[in-house]
Design a protein around this nucleic acid. Structure first.
Lengths: 338, 338
DNA sequence: CGGACGATTTAGATCGATCTAAAGGAGGCA
DNA sequence: TGCCTCCTTTAGATCGATCTAAATCGTCCG
């Protein structure tokens, strides 16, 4: 069932039938109706693959992400899809599970599928070279969420400096003096930037981060729990802790509860990402919100603009300012329910 | 940069170069090396789109899902990807947000992209006709997680009858007499089946579900919270509640805490899906586990088998038996930490 | 020495669309 | 009538791979 069949059925040429499908104004109304009727009658399905070959454009964009199980990335993915779909693009998805070698393979696979552009949340320990195949083949690409040292590419991500300062300032306002930054991938740019921002702001107040609790970790709730339990064996927690992610914060809070520390008074906790469960937790979790869905949409939009721009557009970088969603875990009163 | 260029560079024909790429044993070792060297030298990237046109196979499968923000589906998606990727398939993703009209569009879009097969978690209120385009065009497809009344198609999903019985029996064993099934889409097959199973088991014990709390809802934490708050205004909760999802259970538990009911004693709560946060909650949530990731893998495997099977294979149905993960919210002692 | 045979290689058609350049047809005007 | 538009339609090339059927080559055998 091809366009040739439709054309034959309608008594026109392939070229005309093709023009009808593409809603060209060249074709006469009467012919148009006839062709459309044939399409309907034969149950013809457009073959985008064939068209792509000729047009050198697939209307497909790749999304390479470190893992959907992380709700932050699931949200981001939804945002990407929401933005691309109405523009006629379709998303090819791939999970790297934060493995750089796997990531290289996936990028290659996407290129073989002739994606029009690539969105990528780079694996934490990515080698800076992962973008070179993209650059060499002129595949438009946008990195998001994570910045990789040494990689020059367009980027959409959160302002980690601002986020860390927001949280730190709030804790200082509560009168806390001992602050720590808990968890996160050791060499990740996000952790490094946030710790630096926190330290800078503390320094302005004659303080410094509590070293024994300012330690890296993997980004999961159970990891946060295990690490917190271990640290709690050696003494009480600091007055206030900013966690690298909400998941880690949940783990920390569980550990604190185990040893009888009251959250919000005995230890003030702030999370990062503001995932859906943050408000449902008890006590509800104060968190730095970076609006994953919005970030996905913005990154997708930037990519589309770059795809549609003629020639090569200059590298650009969009930084979104996070906000602090204040709830109970930092020691503030519960706001009106819901 | 095409295969013709590679062939020219290596001094062979396109046909030979093509054979090399496909690792055909026909071509002489020496020639093979030469071609491979040219591929390397020119930085050639295989054009799968062109190959697909000829081979009538894209190595792409579609995944149409109701929403990634639901961690259950995010897990399922990871499972699907894990299974398909090593087999050389790539996933085209689409979110329906449970809108049947949107779903029809997405299925059509996937067909235009010539997917080799389709995995679908149907929108709750899907019309039974959504599979007919697939059937008419001979696109292999497998439904998962949700069963739609009137749709005949291969299916991989949980045994809702067994799941509901598991939870119900556990609560009966605790001595509870007033049981309710709380939340879930009103006309969803899952809710209907589970309520029926619960009612049947209760009937064997001379009981029946508590009607005022056995009510439908949308599947979100805030929805569960709001509904529970409203019901609590009219009186105390039943002795035990099975929730349609963990998210709803979280909402319910928050509401119970608000009014001072102790979870596990004042009201026993069981969730459904066993999402990652279930164990991290406090009290930890007893939940019926249906292993979303495994289900995704099984569904993907079934689809691949159907794609690779010559001719049309008979409709098949794989039902996975859930298990009850016992934690604290049902009133059991906390098991050893972690 | 001619022919058969196995091992390699290849020319040319093909998949299903789009694009280019030109053809066909109706009407207007001198 | 003949010529020039303008509006529509179309034949044939093209995208980059694979497939079919046949060509080429060296060797071995009678």
């Amino acid at each position: 069932m091809t366009l040739a069949d439709v054309a034959a059925h309608a008594g026109v040429s392939r070229a005309t039938a093709s023009l009808v499908l593409r809603e060209s104004p060249l074709v006469a109304e009467q012919t148009r109706q006839r062709v459309l009727a044939s399409v309907e009658a034969l149950g013809y399905v457009y073959n985008r693959g064939a068209a792509s070959l000729r047009m050198r454009r697939t209307n497909t964009i790749g999304l390479v992400i470190s893992g959907l199980a992380n709700p932050f990335f699931a949200d981001l993915t939804e945002g990407v899809e929401e933005e691309l779909r109405p523009a006629g693009y379709v998303v090819l998805l791939a999970n790297t599970f934060d493995d750089p070698a796997h990531q290289d393979m996936l990028i290659r696979s996407m290129m073989e599928h002739q994606i029009d552009g690539l969105l990528i949340v780079a694996a934490v320990d990515s080698d800076a070279g992962f973008v070179t195949p993209l650059r060499n083949n002129g595949v438009p690409h946008v990195m998001t969420t994570r910045r990789i040292r040494g990689v020059h590419a367009s980027y959409v991500g959160p302002d980690d400096d601002a986020g860390a300062r927001l949280a730190t300032q709030h804790l200082l306002d509560h009168g806390a003096r001992e602050l720590a930054y808990f968890g996160g991938p050791e060499h990740g740019v996000a952790r490094i930037d946030r710790v630096a921002a926190m330290a800078a702001l503390l320094a302005e107040n004659g303080l410094e981060p509590e070293p024994s609790w300012t330690v890296p970790s993997r980004v999961s709730s159970s990891e946060g729990y295990a690490m917190a339990r271990k640290l709690l064996e050696h003494g009480p927690p600091p007055e206030a802790v900013i966690c690298h992610s909400d998941a880690i914060a949940f783990g920390l809070m569980r550990a604190l509860r185990d040893v009888g520390v009251e959250i919000g008074t005995g230890c003030r906790v702030i999370g990062y990402d503001d995932v859906e469960h943050a408000q449902a937790w008890s006590p509800s979790l104060t968190s730095v919100s970076v609006a994953a869905r919005t970030m996905g949409r913005r990154a997708a939009r930037m990519l589309m603009e770059r795809i549609e721009a003629p020639g090569s557009s200059p590298e650009e970088s969009l930084v979104l300012r996070p906000s602090l969603v204040v709830r109970e875990s930092c020691g503030c009163r519960p706001s009106s329910a819901h």
